[in-house]
Write a protein that binds this DNA or RNA. Structure first.
Lengths: 101, 101
DNA sequence: CGGTATCCACAGTGATACTG
DNA sequence: CAGTATCACTGTGGATACCG
């Protein structure tokens, strides 16, 4: 849990899964509402857990790419199941809300 | 995530899964370190999510039993996968620690 | 472009005492 | 037995400004 908990980690992983390569600002654009600080923080934590990889290209302007590691990919079945369960859960909540109208 | 995140929720579910029925103080004894307040809070949250069920027996002394709901049981495959991944993760960390000794 | 540096609010967690 | 009530602490998350 300590590896995937964090407000934005699942969303980040969702965008990098199964094998996308994205730059910092691409991720920022894909995740509305996240601040630069939080994106940096959560990316660093995922990197420290060896779930994602950070590749720096020493150019100007700077370019940094993020991608899933092989180890990170072992999380995919779990995340996929969580995603499916979450969708079903939302449908269930909607059904419950509709029921007492 | 909002349903299973919380420091003790996974541990609580682990003890109630697949179909155990436990009383408040039994859970408290099974989970060393948890305080009464936190156990109550996390149980209430799981109950509100319809993951566990709370049955009150109006006796003296009071008796309250907790059990997994049918809906809660749909989480089992996910929790089991998370558990397995977590164990593998621990072994990996140990191996990494041993490697640079 | 891809970040740090500060500062701050608040939710989550916890210790302790009390109760029907 | 199975909780509340109260108070306190701390880390996560966030807004904003600045930087090589």
């Amino acid at each position: 849990m300590s590896i995937i908990s964090g407000k934005w980690k699942l969303i980040i992983l969702f965008h990098l899964m199964p094998d996308k390569v994205l730059r910092f600002n691409e991720l920022k654009r894909l995740i509305p509402g996240i601040t630069q600080r939080m994106l940096t923080k959560q990316l660093r934590e995922l990197e420290q857990s060896d779930i994602i990889e950070r590749t720096i290209y020493p150019e100007i302007p700077p370019r940094v790419e993020y991608s899933i590691t092989e180890y990170g990919r072992t999380l995919q079945p779990i995340l996929q199941m969580m995603h499916q369960w979450g969708e079903a859960h939302l449908r269930r909540m909607e059904a419950a809300a509709a029921a007492h109208e």
